[in-house]
């Protein structure tokens, strides 16, 4: 039963991911990206991590993609859809993609992707959120804080860049 659902979600995710890069219209791409994210969230639920699924929907679908669409909507669609995006690099890009695919196939076949089961059993996963919270703020406190710091720097940097160009405009 679970396998069946996994295959449904995985299939939909792969199909929509392919559509993201193959449709011409940027808004359609964005739409299929939303679909992909939703399928991934569904797979997270199958993996017994509802918190991650909710956050995936909340952050990626609810916020990031809205911003994305906001930017895409103000594009001039007529030009964007017609433009050739690869600028004559399609042959090398295709070759690289095939090589990457073969590489990944090799790793999947040869490598060991079965992760060690964690120290948490089925029972602990009921309180999924608490487990994640405790782990994040104890064992993974340094990576967590570093990630926060990087995000903060990016935020400040973005504002600084905008303010600089604004100041120049006013200086003129």
């Amino acid at each position: 039963m679970e396998q069946l659902f996994f295959y449904i979600f995985a299939f939909a995710a792969v199909i929509s991911a392919i559509l993201v890069i193959s449709v011409r219209n940027p808004v359609h791409s964005a739409f299929f990206l939303i679909v992909t994210f939703m399928q991934v969230a569904a797979i997270f639920i199958l993996l017994r991590s509802p918190f991650l699924a909710a956050v995936q929907v909340f952050v990626y679908v609810g916020a990031v993609m809205v911003l994305f669409l906001f930017a895409v909507l103000v594009l001039d669609m007529g030009k964007e859809t017609m433009k050739e995006h690869l600028h004559g690099q399609s042959i090398p890009a295709g070759v690289m993609a095939v090589i990457l695919f073969l590489l990944m196939c090799y790793m999947v076949v040869k490598g060991r992707i079965v992760a060690n089961p964690g120290s948490y059993g089925e029972a602990a996963l009921v309180n999924n959120t608490e487990v994640i919270g405790r782990e994040l703020y104890t064992r993974f406190i340094y990576p967590f804080e570093i990630v926060s710091l990087i995000l903060l720097v990016a935020l400040v940097g973005a504002i600084a860049l905008v303010m600089q160009s604004k100041g120049k405009e006013q200086g003129k």
Partner: peptide, 16 residues
């Protein structure tokens, strides 16, 4: 057990 998060996440989708 993630009820409130689920509601915020799904409720936000209506915007699309």
């Amino acid at each position: 057990n993630v009820g409130i998060l689920y509601i915020l996440a799904i409720g936000g989708l209506g915007i699309y």
